[in-house]
């Protein structure tokens, strides 16, 4: 089975995000970069499928030079090879442009199933997997917490508000991974050593025959709106404090 996983390097969830004074982006100084957590579920699921059905796992990432670390992490977990799409023209890519680059790279390699994270925790856009599927002309199943492959079909579990769906799709297909799909493995020391020698192709936009055409642009980054300072309910008696809180919620905030 030919398995492709799209991964993105993002700031760690514990990272403080500071907006640059001119609002042109975020200040990257001091940020610890990691693989997008949802993409880790994709990598893990790909490796489990490979272990069960055989085949090979290709990692594809769009990002600057540092994104190579994330590709190597996936290779250290057990993936076979990588494609690193690195082009300054793609640094401010929106979902459509990123998916165009991924599609151009993936078109030229065999692909039975493609995993993406259900969203990246930096831009929180959650579009790339679906746009990629559309550009490749294949179906998508998004936000998946359980996956079974049966021949050339899949069955995927997808939680929606108040229910769970079991969705069937033919392959090839894009599956976007949600937390709960699996528990990603850590790279082993031998895995890390081996990863250094695994092949990674580096391509730019021209090599992929594409140009960046950004259709949704963040014109300005701003810090989150400040919340007004809150009230601390004082006193020594828990019951009295609880009563005061209930009263505030009822009479001042009017939310209960």
């Amino acid at each position: 089975m030919n398995i492709v996983v799209c991964v993105k390097q993002v700031p760690d969830t514990e990272a403080q995000i500071k907006v640059k004074p001119d609002g042109s982006g975020i200040d990257e100084a001091g940020i610890k970069w990691v693989m997008n957590p949802y993409d880790e579920y994709g990598v893990e699921e790909a490796l489990r499928l490979k272990e069960k059905l055989g085949g090979d796992v290709t990692i594809v990432s769009v990002g600057p030079a540092r994104a190579m670390e994330t590709i190597r992490t996936a290779l250290a977990m057990g993936a076979d090879k990588g494609i690193h799409i690195d082009d300054p023209a793609l640094n401010d890519a929106d979902a459509y442009t990123t998916a165009t680059a991924l599609a151009a790279a993936i078109k030229s390699i065999p692909h039975d199933i493609i995993f993406c994270g259900q969203r990246a925790i930096d831009d929180d856009s959650g579009q790339v997997g679906s746009v990629l599927a559309e550009l490749l002309g294949i179906p998508q199943v998004t936000i998946v917490t359980k996956l079974e492959v049966e021949g050339s079909n899949i069955k995927a579990t997808k939680p929606i508000e108040g229910a769970q769906l079991l969705i069937g799709s033919s392959l090839p297909c894009v599956v976007t991974a949600q937390k709960g799909l699996n528990e990603p493995r850590y790279a082993s020391l031998p895995g890390i050593m081996k990863a250094k020698k695994k092949p990674v192709d580096i391509k730019n936009a021209a090599a992929l025959g594409m140009t960046a055409d950004v259709k949704a642009k963040v014109a300005k980054f701003v810090p989150p709106p400040a919340r007004p300072p809150g009230k601390i309910v004082c006193g020594d008696d828990p019951a009295a404090k609880a009563a005061e809180l209930a009263k505030l919620l009822r009479e001042e905030a009017k939310v209960i």
Partner: peptide, 21 residues
Amino acid sequence: VQGKDLSSRLVGKLATGMATD
């Protein structure tokens, strides 16, 4: 959940951009 799935596919079909959420 449904809107996210549909809207992102439409971004591809209509070749446009979208601000999510």
